[in-house]
Design a protein around this nucleic acid. Structure first.
Lengths: 224, 224, 224, 224
DNA sequence: GATGAATGAGTCTTCATTCAT
DNA sequence: GATGAATGAAGACTCATTCAT
C-alpha cells in the first residue's frame, strides 16, 4: 500500500483525523438517512395512515432498500414513535410561542389570531403531525406521546381560558378546553384538506366559531 | 315484512312450490344473511377499525364461512360501504325526523335540541357509525361511501341552514355546513367517550357552541 | 325464523347427509393435507435440519401454497412439534414391542437382535426421527418432546439392563444406559448413511459393540 | 514469534522501511485479525450453532466491522472451515502425540489412556471443535472441512487399528474405525455435558466400551 | 486495509379472495 | 347457496455480502 504515506503530513496525524472526521462524516450521513426516512414516513403515514403504511413503501419513498431502513429503526412502530416525538418537539416549540402571555392577553379576536395562526401554520407545514396524532391505530405505543401532547395542549388552552374569566369550575374548564381542542382538530382537517382561498375561509370560520363560543365567557376586564 | 308467511306453505312444498316460493325464500334468507354479516361487520369494525378487520373475522363473527360472505359482498370495502349505507338509512328512518321541517323551523335553541338529540342518541346506540365514518385510515377505499354519507348529511345541514337566512353565498353555505359537521363530529367523540353527567355536559357544550355560532347568522324572521 | 322447519324433511334427508358426510370428507382431506405437510416437513428437516428448513420449502415440497401450510399449523415450530410427537408415538409403539419381556429375557445376543432390529428398522423408515431428535437447535420447544423421548428410552434401557445384573448402583445404571443410547445413536448415523451390505455391516458392528460391552456385566443367570 | 521485534524499528520508519517492513507487518496484522475473527467465530458458533451464527455477530464479537471480516474470509462457510482446520491443526500440534507410536504400541488399556486422554482434554478445552464437527445442521456447506477432519481422524484411527491385527479387510477397517469415531463422538457429548466425577465416570465408561470392543480383535503380539 | 452503510433476496406469516365440493 | 380449503401476493423483518469512503 504505497499510498499510506499520504496522511502523515505535518503533525495532526492521520489517526486523530481519521478517528474524528470519518465517524463524523458517517454520523452525518446516518442522520441524513434518518431524516430522509422520517420524511418519507411522514409522507406515507400522511397518505395512507399508520396501519396501512408499509415499511417497504417508506423505504422506497426514501429511495433506500428495506434493509437500510432497519439499520436505523428496529421496527415500524419505532418509526412512528420517533417521527411523532420529533414533530411533538417541534410542535411544542411552536405552541410555546403561540401561547405566549403577550398573545394570550390581547383582546380576544387578536388573541385568537396570535394563538391560532402559528398553530395552523405549523400543521400546514407538518401535515404528518395530526395524521399521526389521530393515530388510527398505533398499537398502543405512541399513545404515550399522544397523551403527552394532549395533556400539554389541554394545559395550555386551560391557561389561556383562565385569563378570560375566573368563573369556571374545574369541570367546566375541562369541558370547554376539550371542546376547543375538538373544534380545532376538526377545523384543521378542513383547513388541511383545502388550499388557498378555501383554506383561508376555513381558518376564518374556525376563528368565528371560537370567538362566538368564548366571547360570552369573558368576565375578566381585558384590553378592548 | 310481507314475505314472512311464505314458509311452511303446503306441506311437501319444496319441489312443487319451488318456482314460486323458493325465490322469495331465497331472497329472505339472503337478506337475513346480509343483516347477519353487516351486524358482524359492525362489531368487528367497531372493535378493531376498518383496516385491521379481517373478512374472515367478520365471517366467523357472523357464523358463516368466508365463501358465503363473498356470495353477498364482492369485497371488504363493499361491506363497509353497505354497512355505512344501512346505518345511514337506519339513521334516516329512525331518526330522520331530526331534520323534519317542524324541527328545523323551531326557534334556534329548540331546533338544535330537536335536531341534535336524536342524532346523538342514534350515534350512542350505533357506535359503528362514526367508527366507519372516521375512516380510521381507510386506505382510500370507503371513500365512495364516505362521500355519499357526507354529501347526504351536508345536504341536510344546508337545508336547515337555509331556513336561517337567505344571505349565504353557496360558498359560505358550504363552509358553514362543513364546520358544523366537523364540530358535531368532534363533539361526538367527546360525547361517546364519556358517560352520564359528563356526557350530558358535552352535549350541552356542543349545543352552546352551535347556538353561538349560528345565532348571529339568523336573518329570517323565526318564531322566537 | 321461518325457515327453521326445513330440516325435518323425511328422515335421511339431504341435510342429514350434508351435515355428516361433507364434514367427514373435509376432515379427511384436512388430515391428508396434514400428513402431506408432515411428510414434506420430515423430508426437509431431514435434508436441511430444523433451523435451515423454510416453511415455504416445506409447502413447496408438499405441493401446496404457503398459506395452506398455515391453515394447519400456526408456525414453523408447531410443525416440528407435531412431527416429533407423531414420530414419537410411532416410536413408542415400536419401542414397546422392542423391549417386550420375551425379548429382554432372551440370551444376550438374541436379546440384542430382538431389541435392536425393530428399532433400527423404525429409524430406517423414519429418518426424520433422529433428525428432529438431534434437534440442531429447535428453539426450546420440542425440548419437551426430546426430553420425554429420552426419558422414556432411558427407562426402557435401564429396565432391560436390570435383567442382566442386580449389581448396578443407580449411578452406574445411569452411565451405562446413557452410553448405550449414545452408542446406538452414533451407530444409527452410520447405519442411516449407508445402504445394503454396508448398512448391515454397521448393524452387526453395533451389536458386536454392545454385546462385548454388556456381556461382562451379566451376573444374573440367563438362558444360554 | 520471530517477527515480533519488527515494529518500532528505527524511529520514523514508516516510509523508508515500507517496502520491506510493511509487508511483514501486514502479514502479521492480518494473522492477528484472522485469529481474532476465528476466536470470535468459535465463541459464536459455540453459543448459537453454525446456522444461527450471523457474520455480523462474529465481526462484532471480534470488534471489527463486517467489511473487515470479508477481507479475510470469502463467506461464512469459509470461517467455519478455517476454524475447523485451525482447531484440527491445534489438535494435531498440541495433542497429536495422542497417536504417537509409543502410545499406540502400549498394551491396549494403556494405549487407550494415552490416546484418549489428550483428545478428551483437548475437546474439553475447545468446545467449539465438536460444535463445528457435529455440524448442527450445517446446510451441506462445511462438508469439505468435515470430510477433511473426518478423513484425517479416520486415518489415524486406522493406523492405530492396524497395530492390533493384520486380519482386517479394508472394509472391516473402515467399519471399525467409523464405529470407534462414532462411539468417541457420542461419549464426548456425554463427557462435555457433565463435570467432575460424572465426567470422569463417562470417560471411564468410554474406555471400557472401547477396550471390550477392541480387545477381541487383537492378534498381533503386544506388550502385555 | 478498515469501516459501516447499503443492498436485496429470502424468511415467516397474514389475509383478501377464489374454487372445488 | 354454503362450505372451508387453497391460493398467492404482500408485509415486516433478517442477514450474508458488497461498496463507497
Amino acid at each position: 500500500m504505497p499510498g499510506t504515506a499520504r496522511d502523515k503530513s505535518v503533525a495532526t496525524g492521520e489517526d486523530g483525523d481519521l478517528a474524528a472526521a470519518a465517524p463524523r462524516r458517517r454520523q452525518a450521513r446516518g442522520e441524513r438517512r434518518i431524516s430522509q426516512l422520517l420524511a418519507a414516513a411522514a409522507g406515507v403515514f400522511c397518505r395512507t395512515g399508520y396501519a396501512a403504511a408499509s415499511t417497504n413503501a417508506i423505504a422506497r419513498e426514501a429511495g433506500v432498500s428495506p434493509g437500510t431502513l432497519y439499520q436505523y429503526f428496529p421496527n415500524k412502530e419505532a418509526i412512528a414513535i420517533q417521527l411523532g416525538s420529533q414533530l411533538l418537539q417541534h410542535a411544542r416549540e411552536t405552541h410555546g410561542q403561540a401561547f405566549l402571555p403577550e398573545n394570550v392577553h390581547l383582546p380576544l379576536p387578536e388573541a385568537l389570531d396570535a394563538i391560532l395562526d402559528p398553530l395552523i401554520a405549523f400543521n400546514c407545514e407538518n401535515p404528518a403531525f395530526w395524521a399521526l396524532m389521530h393515530g388510527s391505530g398505533i398499537p398502543g405505543a405512541m399513545d404515550t406521546e399522544h397523551e403527552e401532547l394532549h395533556t400539554s395542549m389541554t394545559a395550555q388552552v386551560q391557561g389561556a381560558l383562565r385569563t378570560l374569566t375566573t368563573d369556571f369550575t374545574p369541570a367546566e374548564l375541562d369541558h370547554v378546553s376539550h371542546m376547543i381542542l375538538g373544534i380545532f382538530k376538526a377545523s384543521l382537517d378542513l383547513i388541511l384538506a383545502h388550499e388557498g382561498a378555501e383554506r383561508d375561509a376555513y381558518v376564518a370560520e374556525l376563528k368565528t366559531v371560537l370567538l362566538r363560543y368564548l366571547e360570552p365567557m369573558v368576565t375578566t376586564p381585558r384590553p378592548r
